[in-house]
Measured scan of single mutants.
Amino acid sequence: TELRLDINGREIKVDGADKETLKELLKLAEKNNDEKAIRIIRHLLER
Rank of each mutant, 00 (worst) to 15 (best):
T1V: 06
T1E: 15
T1M: 10
T1S: 12
E2V: 01
E2W: 03
E2Y: 03
E2A: 02
E2Q: 05
L3R: 14
L3W: 00
L3V: 15
L3E: 15
R4A: 15
R4N: 15
L5M: 06
L5T: 13
L5I: 14
D6I: 15
D6K: 13
D6L: 14
D6F: 11
D6E: 15
D6S: 14
D6C: 15
D6M: 14
D6N: 14
I7F: 10
I7R: 00
I7Y: 03
I7M: 05
I7K: 00
I7P: 00
N8H: 02
N8C: 12
N8T: 02
N8F: 04
N8G: 13
N8P: 00
N8D: 12
N8Q: 05
G9A: 01
G9E: 03
G9F: 01
G9Y: 01
G9I: 01
G9P: 01
R10N: 13
R10S: 13
R10K: 14
E11P: 05
E11C: 14
E11Y: 04
E11F: 05
E11Q: 08
E11G: 03
I12N: 01
I12A: 02
K13E: 08
K13A: 10
K13F: 14
K13L: 14
K13Y: 14
V14I: 07
V14L: 05
V14H: 01
V14M: 02
V14D: 02
V14C: 02
D15I: 06
D15G: 05
D15F: 02
D15T: 05
D15L: 04
D15E: 05
D15P: 04
D15V: 06
G16C: 09
G16L: 14
G16Q: 13
G16S: 14
G16H: 10
A17L: 11
A17P: 04
A17S: 14
D18S: 07
D18G: 04
D18M: 04
D18K: 03
D18V: 03
D18A: 05
D18T: 06
K19E: 08
K19I: 13
K19N: 07
K19W: 09
K19H: 11
K19V: 11
K19G: 07
E20D: 11
E20L: 03
E20M: 05
T21P: 02
T21L: 14
T21E: 08
T21N: 10
L22Y: 02
L22D: 00
L22H: 00
L22I: 05
L22V: 03
L22N: 00
L22K: 00
L22R: 00
K23D: 07
K23L: 11
K23M: 12
K23G: 08
K23S: 11
K23T: 07
E24V: 09
E24M: 12
E24H: 10
E24D: 11
E24Q: 09
L25M: 05
L25S: 01
L25K: 00
L25F: 07
L25E: 02
L25N: 01
L25Y: 11
L26W: 02
L26A: 04
K27L: 12
L28Q: 08
L28V: 08
L28E: 12
A29L: 08
A29E: 00
A29Y: 03
A29I: 04
A29Q: 01
A29H: 01
E30G: 05
E30M: 08
E30D: 11
E30V: 08
E30W: 06
K31E: 13
K31Q: 11
K31M: 13
K31N: 09
K31H: 09
K31R: 11
K31F: 12
K31S: 13
N32D: 11
N32F: 14
N32E: 14
N32Q: 09
N33H: 09
N33Y: 09
N33L: 10
N33D: 13
N33K: 10
D34S: 09
D34P: 00
D34W: 06
D34Q: 05
E35H: 10
E35D: 09
E35P: 06
E35N: 08
E35Q: 10
K36S: 11
K36V: 10
K36G: 08
A37V: 05
A37R: 01
A37Y: 02
A37P: 02
A37T: 05
I38K: 05
I38V: 11
R39M: 13
R39P: 04
R39K: 11
R39F: 07
I40R: 03
I40S: 04
I40L: 08
I40V: 11
I40H: 03
I40K: 05
I41H: 00
I41L: 12
I41S: 00
R42C: 05
R42E: 10
R42I: 09
R42H: 08
R42Q: 12
R42A: 10
H43F: 06
H43K: 12
H43P: 07
L44S: 04
L44D: 01
L44T: 07
L44A: 12
L45Q: 05
L45I: 10
L45N: 02
E46W: 05
E46V: 06
R47V: 13
R47E: 13
R47W: 10
R47Q: 12
R47T: 12
R47I: 12
